[in-house]
Nucleic acid binder design. Structure first.
Length: 211
DNA sequence: ATTACGATCATCT
DNA sequence: GATGATCGTAATC
């Protein structure tokens, strides 16, 4: 059951988004769906700051779309983009600050057949096609704005939550690059991923120094 | 391997 | 009215 998983503590998300993004690598995202549990390891993240970050949605100030960013940390900010995709963020920083972390890719761990189905992939599709990329991640876990935007990811009874990595799991090297797909502040090194993991999306280099 | 483009719509100017 | 934290397909090198 999901309720037995060791969830991340709320304090984990009080830190600035770059630190949270870095530390979220290796953690697991769990989704209760249709009586099954879909699970994946977070292998790629991006940090967006609540202040001084023109690429962040929070730069527009508090609006109807992004208001969850200003609330309690550890909640889901889900938004619709390019007319057909959703992206999932985790709010961080204390109440009143709007930092967040975009979850960009998962390594599938459980419920993989269901995830392939949600993605419209064949049974033989490679794992790295299942949830690598923010839009693919949401499709693979049946995450949409309706229902999950604003959800508390630290509620053991919730449908979507963040669990610690397995006991004994050891993170490998972390790589850092500029963020993907943005036009403003495109030079800041705020994308983090597990070096060498095949489920990472997008460019894998050149890498900057590990944090 | 790399580049280009269309899909499609909520949100903001 | 323009833009966008993307993806899949197609074309070209």
């Amino acid at each position: 059951m999901l309720a037995n998983e060791p969830l991340l503590p709320r304090e984990f998300f009080l830190l600035p988004p770059d630190l949270v993004a870095r530390r979220l690598l290796g953690a697991r995202l769990l989704r209760r769906w249709n009586g099954a549990v879909l699970a994946g390891r977070i292998v790629e993240t991006e940090a967006y700051f609540g202040h001084g970050d023109p690429a962040a949605h929070a730069a527009a100030g508090c609006t109807a779309r992004n208001r969850v960013l200003w609330g309690e940390p550890g909640h889901a900010y889900v938004y619709f983009i390019y007319g057909l995709h959703c992206c999932l963020n985790v709010s961080c920083e204390p109440d009143g600050s709007a930092g967040c972390v975009l979850l960009r890719a998962l390594e599938p761990l459980g419920g993989v057949a269901a995830m392939r189905g949600l993605r419209g992939l064949g049974e033989r599709a490679a794992p790295h096609l299942v949830a690598s990329g923010p839009g693919r991640l949401c499709q693979a876990l049946a995450i949409s704005r309706a229902g999950l935007n604003g959800a508390d990811l630290l509620d053991p009874n919730g449908e979507l939550l963040l669990a610690a990595s397995e006991a004994g799991w050891v993170p490998g090297e972390v790589a850092v690059t500029p963020r993907v797909g943005i036009s403003k502040a495109a030079d800041r090194p705020l994308r983090f991923f597990l070096a060498g993991n095949p489920c990472v999306s997008g460019p894998r280099g050149p890498q900057l120094r590990p944090a």
